[in-house]
Nucleic acid binder design. Structure first.
Lengths: 225, 225, 225, 225
DNA sequence: TATGAATGAGACTTCATTCAT
DNA sequence: TATGAATGAAGTCTCATTCAT
């Protein structure tokens, strides 16, 4: 594995380790700066100049860490998608064995990640001019990947007889969409909901369409609006 | 009203009427050209010169009908939103009196408009750099406006006892979102669904969460996946 | 032929003709400006900004006439090579029937073109970073094309028994090289020679290696140093 | 002489000698790296970072040995010209006493050096932006210096009555040019000639223009094509 | 002596907008 | 009303050079 190889090299050469650490830190600094610019100026005005200024470095430096603007933007997005890959499974594991509890935890996990990266999420919805075909494909792939845990949970719940026999992929994608909406339509939903309320309300709506009548009573606490 | 004023002027001066008609026709020609360019090149690459070329006119001319690129883009979006304002009520009216039928017709209406203007819809999700605060507010307002018929239908259905007592605005916005998703995530859903299947499947999912148990049997045809 | 087609269109639409004329004039203006910048700053410093400034136009305008810096530089070179294609055959035709006279006229013709475009000639010897593979191939092709009249004359002279049986292509390329040298090594040769002297001296050297002994007397006027 | 001064210091301080040796070695390493980069990427793309990478050292180090990019490029060229200064006299000395043999050996010597440094030769023909007036003068001077042995041989041959009474400097420069052409127009001549054939053919052409008729027989082996 | 991260000027290119015709 | 040539600001990216370590 490459990480093992890296460890080897790192063990052999502490200098290299330090350098890699600094490099990673810079990457993160630049990613954060890019996110902050998006936050401030709207996700379209992310000029390299602006990112450099925000990070307090020179333009040239960015190009030591990201080959192009594409790569930087892609990295911002991938960064979010990787957060999903870590946070959602963790939330599911912490939720116990019950299918509904697990689904609820997963959905809440998604929403939390999106809330953390609200502006980067919006970025995903822009077919950036710079973002090339390959980059777009990469993002789509990762997004689908991201929906995987949800569809698995749905399938489990269906098999367990707790959920109606729905198309798991479609419902999973709908849930993703509703989570995204907290970022995309934040200006709308924030009028009515706090973050917690939003999660609860949307979960209730979704579960009402999913949970079999005979199990409704058991999950009442998720089903009240 | 400005339209009344226009009518007055028109009545008094037939020349003016002809001129206005020509003007409107040009506007439409340019809007269509812009939409076609978006369709072809992706919604980010809409340069004024490209629109001019597509419309077969000069760049300068565009500026006689739209004050700026912003205004043109805004008009493209407004154009779609106005299509909703026309098509959705028409669909509802044609659907008879039953709350579920009416909701189904409305949702299908939304989806049809979006399918007609897939690329313009995506445009809505891009906060254009130029699109200024005022423009963005205008779009948000119109979008909310757009959800109004749906929330009214939901409210009606709830009062009639057909739907569960949900938050009508939230559910309406979710439905809108799912309709938008046909454009936004077209690359994903087109793998599984034809347009008709998509509408039917999403409607079934939504109604399963809405229709009261005691009315399920009656609307079985909407509820099978 | 495209020129016939152009004529047709031109005949039908005098406006188009005028526009094309203006366009051609601009092209020429920009080509001249580029050549002048090369003249002044050395052939490496030809920035688009500099060309624009020299031509007294904006940078953007250049891009209406040349797709890229490549294209502009290529056009400068092609311009020279086309001058060869016109001037050299004309010089040959004007020189009568004698093989040596014709060769002398051709060589002088080459040198005159080079003297007219001294700096553009130097440009040919720079593998410009921007000039891409295709452009370089194009230039090489045209350069070979350019040597064609000379090698034909050499072949004629050999067949007529006036020249020794040399490899015509090689000798032609050598002559080309010597003509180029008037530009490339101008700083050296101008110490010793005026343009006329240079041509005469080089011609004499070349003919001494070419003309068969028995014809030496006849061409004495070309052979004295 | 500066070398005498160096020797003095060296005698007094063996450490200094070692240091100088290391210094010279580094210089050579960097020069070679630069040449290799030019070879690989074309003589225009020689960035300092590329040279550093090729040499396996840091960018900063180059600046301890060469004050600027100019200086490095100049050194690459001077390096070639010094190769001439060593190799050509050696070739002449090894050739015996005959004027034609000596000239032939000298010309072959030139060509061999050029063949060894084909890309650096091309570099000479590019007035580098950075290469300043002083540097350019230096190169011109060295180039003229380089032609000196040839013109001396020509003068000798003329005095000995073997060559026609030509202008030795001009003919020497022409020979230099033809040798350079092996690099400059390699793409052309390599179609027809191997290196050996090229040297032989060009030498034959040149000698045909030089050797007095009465000596032709004696040098027949140089004069056949 | 050596490193290589960091700088920043400058190059190319695009495109919204203007204006003379 | 219509044209389209012209503008120039702004954006992306490169690379010679410096400097703290």
């Amino acid at each position: 594995m490459s990480s093992a190889a890296a460890d080897d090299a790192t063990l052999l050469d502490p200098d290299l380790a330090a350098r890699n650490a600094r490099k990673e830190q810079r990457r993160r600094q630049l990613l954060d700066a890019a996110a902050r610019v998006m936050e401030r100026e709207g996700s379209q005005a992310v000029s390299m100049q602006a990112v450099a200024a925000e990070a307090g470095v020179s333009v040239g430096l960015i190009y030591r860490y990201f080959g192009s603007k594409d790569e930087l933007l892609l990295a911002v997005i991938v960064n979010v998608l990787e957060d999903f890959a870590v946070a959602v499974p963790a939330a599911i594991d912490a939720a116990g064995d019950d299918p509904v509890e697990r689904l609820a935890a997963a959905f809440r996990g998604y929403c939390e990640v999106i809330d953390r990266h609200r502006h980067a999420t919006v970025l995903t919805y822009r077919e950036s001019k710079s973002l090339d075909e390959a980059g777009r494909e990469r993002i789509k792939e990762l997004e689908v990947e991201t929906s995987r845990p949800l569809s698995r949970l749905l399938r489990d719940g269906i098999e367990a007889g707790v959920f109606r026999p729905v198309e798991p992929e479609t419902v999973a994608y709908n849930l993703l969409l509703v989570a995204h909406a907290w970022a995309l339509k934040h200006w709308y939903f924030e009028r009515t909901y706090s973050f917690d309320d939003y999660v609860r309300a949307q979960l209730s709506l979704a579960l009402h369409g999913l949970v079999q009548p005979k199990h409704r009573r058991r999950y009442a606490r998720f089903l009240q609006e």
